[in-house]
């Protein structure tokens, strides 16, 4: 395929993905917004008022970046995992597999589709959060780059999960038993300064801790960890997962008999 044809194939996948989540907006757009509004109400206004400050910030300003990032992570991941596994289940993934679309274009198309939903929800949640808290952005490049990279990372992870999944149970195991606990333990609601040295060190193996803290740094300038180390970790994770996912697509295992 020449460059123009590759671009058309890529745009087709992305457009189809965006239209898919817009078509089922009551399932894809409304629930995350309701969830985040409840988080802001409970942890921000009701409980947050009694907690006071966390890491030198009013509690609602402390949790807001984490809640936004949580939406971006879960929506990027769930968009790709459900869409790709749905295509496997209905076998319409064969439409792509029989076509000359290169595997890297299939990968990028799904990932950009996931990022579009993740970032779109992120923007909606950010706008909603302004109703509950006043905050400005401390470092725009850091904020934008970390949210883009995080969305990309979890979109790729969702695709890899979908490739290996053999049932709908398989696509809910990772979000339920890995992603949600890591998110809750990833410094969204508390600073690792509250933990003992041992648990603070254990927390460092949680990748979500890095992205949440870097995002919080972008908003408020406050972080528990070195943000450049965080960028390196996210970059490395993207490189590794991207390579594994592309290799899976090239080999066709779990997709072709």
């Amino acid at each position: 395929m020449n460059r123009n044809e590759i671009w058309i194939a890529f745009a087709t996948i992305v457009t189809r993905e965006v239209r898919r989540f817009l078509r089922i907006w009551p399932q894809t757009l409304i629930p995350p917004v309701i969830t985040i509004v409840l988080y802001f109400l409970i942890f921000g206004n009701l409980i947050g008022g009694r907690i006071g400050e966390m890491a030198g910030l009013p509690y609602i300003q402390f949790v807001a970046p984490g809640l936004i990032m949580m939406s971006v992570i879960t929506n990027s991941y769930s968009n790709v995992v459900s869409s790709f596994y749905g295509s496997k289940f209905q076998r319409n993934i064969e439409e792509l597999l029989v076509s000359p679309t290169p595997n890297i274009v299939i990968l990028l198309g799904y990932v950009v589709g996931g990022m579009t939903r993740g970032l779109g929800i992120g923007v909606i949640v950010t706008l909603l959060s302004l109703y509950f808290a006043d905050f400005s952005i401390h470092n725009v490049p850091v904020t934008i780059s970390i949210v883009l990279l995080t969305s990309m990372l979890f979109s790729i992870a969702g695709l890899l999960n979908a490739i290996f999944a053999d049932s709908f149970d398989d696509i809910s195991i990772v979000p339920t038993f890995i992603l949600t606990p890591l998110t809750y333990l990833g410094g969204v609601f508390y600073s690792t300064q509250l933990l003992s040295d041992f648990w603070a060190n254990v927390a460092l193996i949680n990748p979500i801790l890095y992205v949440v803290n870097t995002f919080r740094y972008g908003f408020s300038g406050v972080t528990d960890i070195n943000i450049w180390w965080s960028f390196a970790m996210v970059g490395l994770s993207i490189t590794v997962l991207f390579s594994i996912t592309l290799r899976q697509l090239e080999q066709g295992s779990r997709l072709r008999s």
């Binding site: 395929m1 020449n2 123009n4 044809e5 590759i6 058309i8 194939a9 745009a11 087709t12 996948i13 189809r16 239209r19 078509r23 749905g86 295509s87 209905q90 076998r91 319409n92 064969e94 439409e95 792509l96 029989v98 076509s99 000359p100 679309t101």
Partner: peptide, 30 residues
Amino acid sequence: IGVVPQEFNFNQFEQPIDILVNQAGYYGIG
């Protein structure tokens, strides 16, 4: 190659026109 498989393998939620236009897109057709 154009292939018509034995089992239905299109997205049952999509409209026929979209199924065709998307398939063309995968072949780089505008």
